[in-house]
Design a protein around this nucleic acid. Structure first.
Lengths: 114, 114
DNA sequence: TGTAACTATGTCGAATCTGATATAATTTAT
DNA sequence: ATAAATTATATCAGATTCGACATAGTTACA
């Protein structure tokens, strides 16, 4: 049976596939990263839509500018807990958050855009 | 203007309203608790549907029976992080988790029920 | 160009969360 | 009734996450 090109490359030492494959991520790690990314983008989008600086929005959320920066950047030191709490503090309800998680909604329509 | 009954009771020292009001929970705390409850029930439902004991399921999830018990009970020492990771380790994808969050789905249809 | 506003990065002590162990309480089966 | 299986509670040392601070880098605009 003829080897596929992918298989040949693999045998030659190359790892061909998705970014997740390349980084050797398990399905579990991939799902968590996908989730973190969606949530952190959600926070950033809401802040931008609200015409606020990180400093201003951070104080609204009860944290510092530097931590908000890490939240928006999906930094490893930020837990899913903090990401979700940030969205709740932004005024979102659970349904809004669920929609952001699955990429259905960037910014809920009830967010102030000034 | 005539005071409402609720207002009267309030002035008499009674706090009338929802359980959340009674416990003096902010909207934020309420949303987080709602979320935690939905997720912890999700984990428990999946385990039950899978006909597994806490001990068995815990080892599948890479944790101990006592911690899984706390996860399922929504214990305060369990973070949203751990709740969500538990669901991911149970084989759920982000959409499944979002559905559980909003109470749309108790147990995703692809979960083994033996 | 200069500088003010804003965002990004590094660090840290304190607080929180984790898996594990021990053991108590409850449920199930005989 | 009682032994076995299962679930619940308490505790703790180590790991992770937190807000805060300092400061570096970037962008906007006078």
């Amino acid at each position: 049976m003829e080897k596929s090109k992918k298989e040949k490359l693999k045998n030659a030492g190359w790892n061909v596939g998705s970014v997740a494959d390349f980084l050797n991520l398990s399905n579990e790690e991939t799902a968590i990263i996908e989730l973190r990314l969606a949530l952190s983008e959600g926070v950033k989008n809401i802040r931008i839509q609200s015409n606020m600086t990180q400093t201003g929005f951070a104080s609204k959320l009860g944290t510092s500018q530097s931590r908000l920066n890490k939240i928006e950047a999906g930094d490893a030191s930020v837990s899913l807990d903090l990401l979700i709490k940030s969205l709740v503090r932004s005024g979102l309800n659970v349904t809004d958050i669920a929609n952001i998680m699955v990429g259905k909604e960037k910014v809920p329509s009830n967010v102030q855009t000034i």
